[in-house]
Design a binder for these strands. Structure first.
Lengths: 139, 139
DNA sequence: AATGAAATTAGTAATGATTCTTATTTTTAA
DNA sequence: TTAAAAATAAGAATCATTACTAATTTCATT
């Protein structure tokens, strides 16, 4: 099944490249409709899956029950805010060495690992201290 | 809302303690029905969630779209076989030190991290080599 | 440029895990 | 014993995602 060009896929990929906040399929759908109003949600899902399968984008599973997508496929790690749910890129060294610790006691083939960090992001930490960065009512 | 005793919850917890393969809610449901035939799937979900919330069991999200549950709440890591989907306990040292690397470049509060390993388990590695441990047809 | 097979799409139905609702039953403190 | 609070069974609802299908688009070959 040779890949054929599609405008829908182009627009999806281009949108994702403009965002560094790791949007969900639904967010991609809502934004891409500004350029292709009658695009189908199924088309968004299919193309996100296809792009992830061929390695052009990354699918992020961060435990919130919804898949996130990232146009940056370089090795990096993510932080998920437990309060607002935002997914933030982290600057840190490669930690693949942790796999070595597993190999020492494990029969089987380790292909890799998934690691993400969670806690409270800067904005939510400020808010909970009553130092809301913008004017936001305390909910 | 003071916790009240319930046989359903007891049986669910007891079942989970007999298993080290991290069953899903549905597997818990099917097994627990042998002791409480008319237990409801909703009751299983509610109690698994409750037990996880009070820390008596752990909820595992391993990226396969289904929650797994573990009666062993001590710190340990898991391996997920990409072929058969089994979730296996790993023996390895605490790797919480990886959080230190994040703190160096991150404004916000890191509460912890989620790490799991994936690849091919021992059994599936053997099978793919044509060394099926039991008599299994090549699919 | 025309042809046609393969790929893609829009629209919609289906799926599957999980949560919610409600009327009924169970627990337990007083 | 009683009654309020908690828990339950059964089923409906939700939500993300996938599957289906008929129509459209792509593109290598005429």
């Amino acid at each position: 099944m040779a890949l054929k060009h599609s405008r829908q896929r182009d627009v999806i990929k281009e949108f994702l490249m403009t965002r560094k906040d790791h949007p969900t399929a639904d967010v991609v759908y809502m934004n891409v409709r500004q350029q292709i109003p009658n695009i189908s949600l199924g088309t968004v899902y299919r193309n996100l899956t296809l792009l992830a399968d061929i390695g052009e984008i990354a699918r992020l599973r961060v435990g919130d029950g919804v898949d996130h997508f990232d146009a940056d496929t370089s090795l990096h790690y993510h932080f998920i805010c437990s309060e607002c749910g935002s997914v933030i890129d982290l600057k840190m060294d490669n930690i693949d060495h942790i796999v070595d610790q597993v190999n020492a006691h494990f029969d089987g083939n380790i292909a890799g690992h998934v690691t993400y960090f969670y806690g409270t992001c800067k904005d939510c930490t400020c808010k909970s201290r009553g130092l809301a960065p913008q004017s936001q009512p305390t909910s």
